[in-house]
Nucleic acid binder design. Structure first.
Length: 281
RNA sequence: GGUCUCGUGGCCGAGCGGUUAGGCAGCGGUCUGCAAAACCGUCUACAGCGGUUCGAAUCCGCUCGAGACCU
């Protein structure tokens, strides 16, 4: 779809898929092959390494730079992909919130050794506002908030303006919404195809790096468990399918929040393309 | 033909007289630096009929169904 659109507009594509950035992961991320890219310039495919992962904030920055250059030669650019947070970072901007790897690691250690409770206490005293609205059972959110609090010595919530930043371009989002059964069928089949294409080998070669955050992802974690003898191959495959289905569902949930997004329910790429193009006219 | 065991929500699975067990799948949602991550909510079923009882998924009988064994 993205390639078809890019051809139509004679332009380039930016991927906003947070797993296709990495050159080490190909089969399991269903990255478009060179043939599939069909001569269209793709940014953020194989552009980074799992050893230096790209965060949403960095993505915002790097993507904006690319867009600035590319808009000199193109009126329309295609952004494609699945990572809602990254899409929002680029389209709406993230508030300028500090980040410190060491402090985060320290917090992770505290969480692993002492549990969430002390962290919750700290959060409650240092940022009661945020404490009142976060999901108190979600360690990731709690740790991030405390990371910021410890860096800046002020409440995490004080950094949030939640206002869309001005961008030197306009954008329109389209969501492809296939019937759930069809979606799931395609996901299941896609997993089988990945396996035929050598996913097992790809994952096996990444075993040394299995603890990297960038590999904490569907298609890899399950097979790491298999290689580590925790589950059978059959179980791993079923889990990959299930987790992919769940992820797809969460993507839909994410995009549903966006009132301006246009949804297409057409069943074929050709029809989806027609719908999108007619909306643009 | 006989004896025995068993029939719980889409699936698995506890309960064995008086709260919605639970898990998985599915569905819905949260989301501002690990996001294909992390997390939350939700589905009220006991094969059917009759009986005992204040009260039955839990006890009794019959019917239907599944399985094991015997002849």
């Amino acid at each position: 779809m993205a390639v078809a659109l890019a051809k139509k507009f004679n332009t380039v594509i930016l991927s906003a898929d947070s797993r296709q950035f990495y050159k080490e992961t190909c089969i399991g991320t269903a990255k478009p092959s060179i043939e599939e890219q069909a001569g269209i310039k793709h940014y953020f495919i194989d552009s980074h390494s799992i050893h230096q992962p790209l965060t949403s904030a960095q993505f915002e920055k790097e993507a904006l730079e690319i867009l600035e250059t590319e808009f000199e030669n193109h009126n329309t650019i295609i952004l494609v992909g699945g990572s809602g947070l990254f899409i929002d970072a680029l389209c709406h901007g993230l508030d300028d919130v500090p980040h410190d790897e060491n402090i985060k690691n320290q917090l992770n250690i505290e969480f692993e050794t002492q549990g969430l409770s002390p962290l919750l206490d700290e959060l409650m005293t240092k940022d009661p506002l945020f404490y009142a609205k976060v999901d108190l059972k979600n360690p990731v959110r709690i740790i991030r908030a405390l990371e910021v609090i410890r860096i800046a010595n002020k409440p995490f919530s004080s950094f949030h303006a939640f206002q869309s930043k001005k961008r030197p371009f306009e954008f329109q989002k389209f969501v492809i919404d296939l019937p759930r059964e069809m979606l799931y069928e395609r996901i299941n089949k896609r997993v089988d195809i990945m396996l035929e294409n050598g996913l097992l080998k790809e994952v096996e070669e990444l075993l040394d790096w299995q603890n990297l955050p960038a590999l904490n992802t569907v298609g890899y974690s399950e097979l790491f468990d298999y290689f580590n003898g925790k589950i059978t191959l059959e179980e791993a495959i079923e889990l990959i399918k299930r987790n992919s289905r769940r992820y797809a569902k969460r993507q839909l949930t994410w995009f549903r929040r966006d009132e301006k997004a246009i949804w297409t329910q057409a069943l074929t790429t050709e029809n989806q393309l027609q719908e999108i193009l007619s909306t643009l006219k």
